[in-house]
Design a protein around this nucleic acid. Structure first.
Lengths: 213, 213, 213, 213
DNA sequence: GGCTAACCGAGACGGTACGTCCAGTCTTAAT
DNA sequence: ATTAAGACTGGACGTACCGTCTCGGTTAGCC
């Protein structure tokens, strides 16, 4: 019942018992909460992600969390916002190379960091929480715009005709990536034995886009 | 969240108080439970979908539910299994027509019946429950096989070269459909003003598949 | 069994919805729980005495009860501890008078207040719960000590020889009282018709104690 | 969860799967049920004594039990009725010797056989079940009558004056025995060190009874 | 420089839902 | 007609977490 002491985040220093810093938000608390949330999410998944658990692990009071995040979904979104700052920039010289590289690195990012679990959780959350859905849509629009730029660069480079159906291309790319994430199918390609399906998907899409000009 | 008073079974008729029918499963209970689950799911979404609420509404005991479904996810899957029996069969004469028709009717099915909310819930559930993920994968494989057949029929018909990249085509189709569902973007096409994007997506995919032969 | 509708708190007054008073126990909740427990016990007996029913009647959450009482037995003991504060003090001038008066008033206390039902329940509970048994033994030792004092006063008064077998006397008195309680045989004496057996029991014990000196 | 197979009584023979023997009660079932009930009672106490557990252990269906015993209490009484057939007959030559011997053997019977746990359970049950209380009272009257005979024999023998208060004596004896049982205080006397209190109690009672003549 | 306001942790509060166990009833299939 | 078997509704169990509340204490900024 009382082993809360073991639940607090293992701090290297001395567990200095955060307290108020006056009439404004304590950034140390905010980051402790986000870090705890991220750790719990990547360790136990969305199922173990409760406000109670985050507060326990962060050594924070529940009202402190509720003061700054209205609900679980909002906290979830902040956790992802913090992670996705790792923007994926690519430039291989060809559009096909760029897209393959982009997806490969996105899958690696999802696979090798807590971001994958977090993003899966966000999509799940959005299925029952309208505010999360709106946030997700806005985030998606942002990322689509970025991929749109990559494709536009390819068009400028002559890799694709100017009249190619860019919106279709971009939407299909994201649909592919999402479904792979949501079905747990983002394993690293086994280069030696199994030919990776990813380049084939990209190739089909690019040929189709070229043909729809 | 608190409208439990509305959850009691609508006993307009006779409230026949189901009971045991001997040492075997009572199909009346099973279907009452599945119907209650479906109704709750479509009315309140995944958030309000609890075993407790289902039992209350179905006029069933919780142990009766747990006897036949190990957990919430299993019940969820059964609800969907019951709904998806509405199989979508199409044959318009051309592959493009088939695929557009298929997706249009799929979106309508998701939009106009509880099945859409159910399926969104299942995908969400699969993000935290491995058993649900496995079930979802197996279901997906089944549906992919069906679309594979539609495409194969198109190849036989000559709509696509025999060496077309069928797996890529099928996977991209499903990615597209799922993302539309998960982002709430399956509104009916507004024929007069906005040209529907759906046929454009199908066209791109088919051109790409033809070109990858 | 099913009269739950009568279990809800009688909110004639203002139904102030108790809430937390900070990081410490709310005495209003504690006493509401004990009062509800006492009422249920005296109305329905041990059979209807469930944590669930107490919580319902007290307008309290189950966890609030479990936070402060580890189990049903502990709550039961507290209910009795609250009642037995009505200590029975007697001093009639003679030992025989004191003992008869003590037992008469004890039987009246058991008969006319919820305490009798409560104590019966405690003894019953102690037959299956070791912790309750220990608590009961300790309580019994306490009461035996008090009766021991009454008897010692009688010895000092000369009502009994100094070497009288005090432990036997006290134990036999309690055995008599308990058995009467447990067999439901504590009806008020019907002065007119049936001569009360109680004084006869006391007389036998006192004569025996005097003779064992 | 499903290891019911391990719960059935370890039968030496072959677990012959009892079945109906036609339109009348199967005595094999009855005794299997009583034996299972007795075993459970002595192993787990009243807490683990449920109809479900008895049925499981006896390899019987619950309805079979309910057909012959209306409730848990009735089964409990039957279990004790079966055990108490070991009647305690004493004749040492003196009344004091008889009573000491009787109580000593009664305590040993309660201590060394399942009967003690069973009888404690019956008394506990009687505190909430009126039918059990009535049965207990009737049983008690029967036993009191037997002890009354022992005492009457003592009177005939001249160990006690003819006008001794026999009802008081008998009631006090039972009160003493019951309280010892209910407080778990029936340990075997430690002859070497602690002088047993039992003879002292009997002596006090007999002296008192003699003096009340 | 004292006051006030907002913050911090802690944790109790009334609740809902969990998943399990048992009560007592019912029906079947077999004997 | 009775048996074992097992499903049925229903209710209580003890636990986890929800979102709200109040506490005692700290710190900053304003008068």
């Amino acid at each position: 019942m009382g082993e809360h002491s073991a639940d607090v985040a293992p701090k290297g220093k001395a567990a200095p018992r955060r307290t108020s810093i006056g009439g404004r938000r304590n950034p140390a608390s905010a980051s402790a909460i986000l870090e705890a949330a991220e750790a719990i999410l990547s360790e136990t998944g969305l199922a173990g992600f409760s406000i109670e658990a985050v507060a326990r692990r962060a050594g924070a009071g529940k009202p402190t969390i509720y003061r700054w995040w209205p609900n679980r979904s909002a906290l979830l979104m902040d956790v992802y916002a913090r992670q996705k700052e790792t923007v994926l920039r690519v430039d291989t010289g060809t559009l096909e190379g760029d897209l393959v590289e982009l997806l490969t690195r996105l899958f690696a990012f999802w696979r090798d960091t807590p971001a994958g679990a977090t993003f899966r959780s966000i999509i799940a959350e959005a299925q029952s929480d309208p505010a999360s859905l709106a946030a997700l849509q806005s985030f998606l629009a942002d990322r689509r715009a970025y991929v749109g730029e990559v494709v536009a660069r390819g068009i400028a480079r002559g890799d694709l005709p100017p009249k190619a159906d860019l919106p279709s291309l971009v939407e299909l790319i994201f649909g592919f990536a999402w479904m792979r994430l949501l079905t747990g199918d983002i394993a690293a390609p086994d280069a030696d034995h199994v030919p990776d399906a990813l380049p084939a998907r990209v190739r089909l899409l690019l040929r189709g886009a070229a043909a729809t000009a």
